[in-house]
Design a protein around this nucleic acid. Structure first.
Lengths: 139, 139
DNA sequence: ATGAGTGCAAATAGTTTGCAAGCTG
DNA sequence: CAGCTTGCAAACTATTTGCACTCAT
């Protein structure tokens, strides 16, 4: 099991959430992924029959609330999640055609937080996704 | 009819798209809005019986592709659209609880474009949405 | 007049909810 | 052993598609 999965698990425990076989599998699947995955994609990458799709939805939602995974959205509105790759907060560049993704380290989180606070808002979060057509799909 | 709607209409014409009564109404509704609207919300703000919801979906999609409106996404994945308020590209800060929105002028579009191009990607677009809880909802 | 655009009905995709049974702490 | 968690079925929401008819150009 990856270190990052271990870390995620202890955070869950600290928050009083229970650690089940399914949750470990889901976290490990995300840890193996090269790109953010939707609930369906995560489910497809779990050992067959090991966990119901509904459970994946519920767990991803809780993991997000617990702060152990990051939430993103595709251009079509599908929610996607990723375990920080052990590299903290970041964003992705996704190919519209083939779905290939690249990490992007640009982020204006701090400026956003400041601006939002100047409006009196609290509990700030943000979603940023970049889309384009990758070299292999340009043909 | 607002100037910004007139402008949008001529862009549509230039692209060979047809200008129908429904399209004018949809554009005017968005021009009146203070915040980005989903297809359902846009439809709800049209004169009763003037346009089918399906048509709203189709038009918003085309307007986005034609570049006359901007696409955003809510935290739950719902797509929202806005007519630039005559002020060009910008983003929004949305209250999770009451839906209130504020304009945010921060944007790193150019840096994103550059980074994406360095990966060989073209036709870059991005979605950025900021969420929080507004002062009135903090109680 | 011709093909883009529309309305209506029906299909989809993604996600959420209810409830009884199972497992973790 | 209490109650968080899961699985299964069913409901839901947002969005898309098929098709015949209408209207802008």
């Amino acid at each position: 099991m990856d270190q990052i999965v271990q870390d995620a698990i202890s955070i869950l425990r600290k928050q009083g959430l229970r650690v089940t076989e399914q949750r470990k599998l889901i976290l490990q699947a995300l840890a193996n992924s090269q790109s953010p995955w939707s609930a369906e994609e995560t489910h497809a990458n779990l050992p067959p029959g090991s966990c119901d799709l509904v459970t994946v939805y519920r767990c991803l939602d809780q993991f997000d609330k617990a702060g152990v995974i990051d939430l993103g959205v595709r251009e079509n509105g599908t929610k996607v999640y990723c375990l920080g790759h052990g590299l903290g907060h970041h964003h992705h560049l996704t190919c519209r055609d083939c779905g290939r993704t690249e990490r992007i380290d640009l982020c204006m989180g701090e400026e956003l937080e400041e601006t939002a606070k100047s409006f009196g808002f609290i509990e700030i979060s943000h979603i940023m996704e970049v889309f384009g057509r990758c070299p292999s799909c340009v043909n």
